[in-house]
């Protein structure tokens, strides 16, 4: 009998929790796979990393990575991570969640963590809808798209996430799709090594509850769409990367020089302030 070989990425995952909950054709697994490949390439110590997720399909990612992981309440992954990172600044803290979690119910927290330049790596899997609850419209659902709560077509305008993230003060902003696995790995390597608030949006198919209502019933359908319509424009003005145009603009849009983080300021204050006195 052939001895079963360990997959080279097994040590990064809680294999005892497999199979995962994600549907066939879903892109979240590819995103998580790229994330652990980035860790592997960098040779990071998993004991010095933590992942925080909110609620939703992407929010389940924290349950599969073999590091300290926290599956918190809906929308609150970022403030939880703010507290964790402040208390344990030596950890690399990744927030891995979905578009609804991070930008609808949790939108306010995103603004303020980016504004403070908290040293967090925020990865948003954007599948254009609320998948876990069966496919309702969310803050990224395209105008006119059909979901269970927009049966006649979505009446709302979607948020341009990179533009939003850049205007809040993010140190790093990029957008890739689950088709662009290589670029994604390189991107994750960059953010895992970069200090400051980093934001990456990954467009990802959700054939089961979004695609099938919008003429993309197979996972491959949206991947084909990514292949046909994506155009890499690094450092493009984020105000021009909205998804309301024929081209899907992807790439690294913002990569600022390292600047002081919130954690830096908090810890240097402690050094400066003396018992009983002011600075």
């Amino acid at each position: 009998m052939m001895q079963a070989q360990e997959h080279p990425l097994e040590k990064y995952l809680r294999v005892d929790r497999l199979p995962h909950v994600w549907c066939p054709g879903c892109g979240i697994g590819t995103v998580l796979g790229s994330y652990v490949r980035a860790i592997d390439r960098l040779g990071l110590d998993l004991d010095k990393m933590a992942m925080v997720s909110g609620i939703g399909c992407a929010g389940r990612a924290a349950g599969y990575v073999n590091m300290d992981s926290f599956h918190t309440t809906h929308g609150r992954a970022i403030p939880f991570a703010v507290g964790l990172k402040l208390a344990k600044p030596e950890l690399i803290v990744t927030v891995f969640s979905g578009d609804g979690d991070l930008f609808a119910i949790g939108g306010n927290h995103f603004i303020h963590a980016a504004r403070r330049n908290c040293d967090l790596k925020v990865i948003c899997v954007n599948n254009f809808n609320y998948g876990m609850t069966g496919g309702q419209l969310g803050p990224t659902t395209p105008l006119g798209a059909k979901t269970t709560t927009s049966p006649y077509g979505n009446l709302e305008l979607p948020l341009n996430l990179p533009y939003f993230a850049a205007s809040c003060g993010s140190s790093y902003v990029a957008r890739w799709t689950s088709l662009h696995a290589r670029n994604m790995i390189e991107c994750f390597e960059e953010i895992l090594e970069k200090k400051g608030f980093c934001f990456v949006e990954i467009l990802s198919p959700c054939p089961t509850v979004y695609g099938r209502r919008n003429e993309m019933p197979e996972g491959l359908d949206m991947m084909k769409l990514f292949k046909e319509r994506c155009e890499i424009r690094n450092f493009e003005d984020t105000s021009r990367v909205g998804l309301n145009q024929e081209k899907i603009i992807i790439g690294k849009f913002v990569d600022e020089e390292e600047k002081e983080t919130f954690e830096d300021r908090v810890y240097s204050l402690m050094e400066e302030v003396k018992w009983g006195g002011s600075r």
Partner: peptide, 8 residues
Amino acid sequence: AAIIGASW
């Protein structure tokens, strides 16, 4: 949320 994170 932040105090729970800090406690962990």
